[in-house]
Design a protein around this nucleic acid. Structure first.
Length: 839
RNA sequence: GGGCGUUUAGCUCAGUUGGCCAGAGCGCUUCCCUUACAAGGAAGAGGCCGGCGGUUCGAGUCCGUCAACGCCCACCA
């Protein structure tokens, strides 16, 4: 093949040029005729599509791509699909802001509704169906942008295998898996107190919680005994006194033990309340006596459940105190009216005032800072509200099942290994089953209906299940078999479950979705269980664990063999990047400024699992490396069109190749352990040594001015070929560009270099090392004399061991030519180099 | 309150089973327009390897302890 070397090689435009070629040639297309034993399958994280690609997101994907490219080159057929996680709240919120709309399920569908060019101001309520249509429109646009960004970055994804967690196939998979869970008793519904976001008006799961520090205040409040005595409690939520069902103290607390079984009345409301004992009551906290409300926090739920207390809920789904005075407060009118309709924080202020007026508040509220539970995407503290929800068992209330999931975590190969601890701690700390239902719109529907009894009440205990043939199904618009639409909502008819599933309930099935578990058994058998799950550390508790749960139930095994967990991305000041800090740098910004290969280089310099700061300095080094590859390649290939290079015979050439053998062995070993960073490091170090020393030493010979020219040409070509392949996983564009100058096909489908290519390793590297060491001394002398590196040397003398001198002789002509010396004087002794410069 | 991780040159980081007289790049200083590369090259100056205490012939590497930073978890009345 004729070589076409550019006059002035450049990185500009390589990303566009080669991503088009790769798409055209199907370079990364998965060959599904391969056997399972030849396939390496990757359960790629489907990123949340949200407008712009977060740098932290991109970081892990590049690392995975390097691993994927290595596997592909070392002979595996890589199954590397890509998904988009587009269902769920992030999309709904983005649609609300982007178009200025809100979803009001009570509105009728408006056919032909067009998304506005500018967001409505104020926001426009639209029907559920219109809202969902907008979600589809916007996610489709976002997904195009994301695909473009990934292609620019050079991910070797097979773009013919993509999915979205809201597409029909994903919905069908998700609903079928749910129905299977239900049939086996792994999913169930029930009415219980749940953590509730009052803005999204939806239940949230334990995995979606985060604690935030909030200012609060302890109010010391008096409850009244029948003999006129007062018992004080301290509470940060005095507004919940109206929902109080008991006071509680520790069973061993001598201050209160005599009072167990007696009653008090609440301040203002004068509701009679028992004093009960429970070991969760902490004598150290406050007065040692606490009020139990339904529900102020999760401890209240525990007390309520274990002590079988009544339910006196007052906060509604929108976070306001209910408008009607609750019946247990009737008879003490007026007080409740003061807080009816208020939000919790408003009611708190009002209650404090009222308690102060009545004399039930002892002293001023004492300001504190405490941790409050929030939905991770929410803005206001969670409330606890009783409602009917769907759950999947996860071991949170079943020790035997918990143990099974702990064992699954132990089975998995974690990279880095310490990440397994996070999984273990999460599973050990679960305190309830996985709540999967959400009172939202843009998600996979829960595929059940409920019969309505003749008395008009809904029978939640006997759901009507969708059949497999009906899937995907939307119970709010589709009709169960045996019914017709006219029976919807009628006595004797049915009603569809209005809820959707949590996004994790679907994204926990990415192996099943990408591998087409339901509709392509042939593919499924070739890719499952997946070989690799790469992901971020923050979603071990959600995505990784949930996926383990689903595969354990459905297939009785782990969904993958290996999990690689990438580190956090910190901003240049080593702070975690987040929108609230306003320090987010998008991946596109970085690629525009530094080029995709520089960004890739930086990402691959981050060790597996190590937190890494954004460092444009490292990106600049990556860019310099890419340019160096171009220029060095131009030199190495600039000697005619040797299609069949001659034998490599010269000692220096053989020594260089022996060194490369060690490099290849080390890089391969590192990649086998998913340590892309180590592989890059060893390749890079070898490459710079090669350009600085070996190439300088053989330059004159390569030009044909010394014997052994064809050996030099052959060695340059072979070593260049190996370097290109070593760098291909990291710098896919520049390596492909150079490969195209002189090779057929793609470097990314060439084979990973092996020690066998560099011949017998017995030559050793000593000849090259000796020559390099002396050359370094010559350079030092010239540098200190402040003369050009080309300045001639009038006398070059080396004192060294006989072994060293013998090795030096092997590369003598090359050394003299590179040093600019005529002859070499040698003698045995302590190592020393004498360099005299001419004139 | 518990757990995990990190702490090595001004900066970003390597340092694999203990042998180092401690490495790289950036930055800094000096020099070199050299026919692969001036968006380059050569050389140089920078560190009691977070503190303290152990084990050992020998510790950046192992053990204990403390501190700072980051993350995760916790029943936050």
């Amino acid at each position: 093949m004729p070589r076409i070397l550019p006059e002035k090689p450049t990185l500009d435009g390589l990303d566009e040029k080669w991503s088009e070629v790769w798409e055209r040639d199907g370079t990364y297309r998965f060959d599904r005729t391969k056997a399972r034993s030849e396939i390496f399958s990757i359960d790629t994280p489907p990123p949340t599509v949200s407008g712009s690609l977060h740098t932290g997101n991109m970081f892990g994907y590049v690392q995975t791509d390097a691993n994927a490219r290595y596997r592909r080159m070392s002979g595996w057929e890589v199954f590397y699909p890509m998904g988009w996680d587009d269902n769920g709240l992030p999309t709904e919120r983005r649609v609300q802001n982007y178009y200025g709309v809100t979803c009001d399920p009570s509105l009728p569908y408006e056919p032909g509704f067009q998304p506005p060019d500018q967001a409505f101001e104020p926001s426009k309520p639209i029907s559920r169906r219109n809202f969902i249509e907008l979600c589809h429109v916007l996610t489709a646009e976002d997904e195009k942008l994301f695909e473009h960004a990934w292609r620019t970055l050079g991910l070797s994804v097979d773009w013919s295998h993509t999915y979205a967690t809201i597409d029909e196939h994903s919905q069908r998979t998700s609903q079928q898996a749910f129905l299977n869970n239900l049939a086996r008793g792994e999913a169930y519904s029930g009415e219980a107190p749940v953590l509730w976001d009052i803005d999204f008006k939806s239940a949230v799961a334990q995995a979606e919680l985060e604690d935030r520090e909030r200012p609060g205040a302890y109010h010391r409040v008096a409850f009244h005994q029948s003999d006129g005595g007062r018992l004080y409690i301290e509470t940060s939520r005095p507004e919940l006194i109206c929902s109080c069902v008991a006071l509680v103290a520790h069973p061993d607390d001598a201050r209160y033990s005599a009072l167990f079984g007696t009653t008090v009345t609440s301040p203002l409301f004068r509701v009679e309340l028992p004093i009960v004992a429970h070991e969760l009551a902490d004598p150290e906290k406050g007065t040692g006596l606490a009020m139990i409300c339904t529900f102020g926090d999760t401890t209240d739920v525990t007390w309520w459940r274990e002590l079988r207390l009544p339910t006196r809920a007052v906060i509604e789904a929108d976070g306001r105190f209910q408008a009607e005075t609750p019946d247990w407060l009737l008879g003490e009118a007026n007080v409740y009216e003061e807080i009816a309709g208020l939000y919790a924080n408003q009611a708190r202020t009002r209650m404090a005032e009222l308690l102060a007026e009545s004399g039930d508040l002892d002293g001023e509220p004492r300001p504190i800072t405490h941790l409050v539970k929030f939905y991770e995407k929410g803005d206001r503290p969670l409330e606890i509200i009783t409602s009917r929800q769907w759950y999947i068992r996860n071991g949170g209330r079943d020790d035997d099942l918990r143990k099974q999931f702990l064992n699954r975590g132990d089975e998995l190969h974690w990279v880095p290994d310490f990440m397994r601890v996070r999984y273990r701690h999460w599973v050990e700390g679960l305190n309830g089953d996985w709540l999967i239902s959400r009172q939202r719109f843009f998600g996979v529907a829960i595929p059940v209906w409920y019969p309505i009894r003749e008395d008009g009440n809904t029978d939640f205990e006997h759901p009507i299940l969708a059949t497999s043939e009906q899937l995907p199904v939307d119970p709010t618009s589709h009709v169960p078999i045996g019914y017709d639409e006219s029976q919807r909502g009628q006595p004797g008819g049915f009603v569809g479950d209005p809820d959707v599933m949590d996004t994790w309930a679907t994204s926990s099935l990415t192996p099943q979705i990408a591998g087409h578990w339901l509709d392509d058994a042939d593919l499924w058998d070739r890719v499952f269980p997946m070989d690799l799950r790469p992901q971020g550390p923050e979603i071990i508790r959600t995505w990784l664990f949930a996926t383990t749960v689903r595969a354990h139930f459905e297939h009785g095994r782990l969904p993958w063999h290996n999990a690689t967990i990438n580190g956090w991305i910190l901003d240049p000041d080593r702070k975690k990047m987040s929108k609230s800090h306003g320090n987010v740098i998008t991946a596109q910004d970085l690629m525009d400024e530094h080029g995709p290969e520089a960004v890739r280089y930086w990402a691959c310099n981050g060790r597996p699992g190590a937190d890494t700061a954004i460092d444009t300095g490292v990106m600049k080094i990556g860019r310099r490396l890419a340019i160096k590859i171009l220029n060095a390649s131009k030199f190495a290939l600039g000697f005619g069109d040797d299609t069949a290079p001659g034998p490599i015979t010269e000692p220096l050439d053989l020594a260089m190749l022996a060194g490369l053998t060690a490099t290849v062995t080390e890089a391969t070993r590192a990649f086998e352990e998913f340590d892309y960073a180590r592989a890059l490091e060893v390749a890079e170090r070898a490459f710079w040594d090669w350009t600085d020393d070996y190439v300088e030493l053989v330059k004159v010979r390569a030009y044909g001015e010394l014997p052994g020219t064809s050996s030099a040409h052959a060695a340059l070509q072979l070593s260049l070929s190996i370097f290109l392949r070593l760098f291909a996983p990291f710098l896919p564009f520049v390596t492909e560009e150079v490969w195209s100058w002189w090779q057929e096909g793609s470097v990314h489908r060439s084979s990973w270099p092996t020690a066998a290519e560099t011949g017998e390793p017995s030559h050793g590297t000593a000849a090259l090392e000796a020559a390099s060491q002396v050359l370094a001394e010559v350079r030092r002398a010239k540098s200190e004399a402040k003369v050009s590196m080309k300045a001639p040397v009038s006398r070059l003398a080396v004192v060294a061991s006989s072994e060293f001198l013998a090795n030096l002789q092997l590369g003598l002509p090359d050394l003299l030519s590179a040093a600019g010396a005529e002859t070499l004087q040698t003698s045995e002794g302590e190592f020393a180099v004498e360099v005299k410069l001419a004139s």
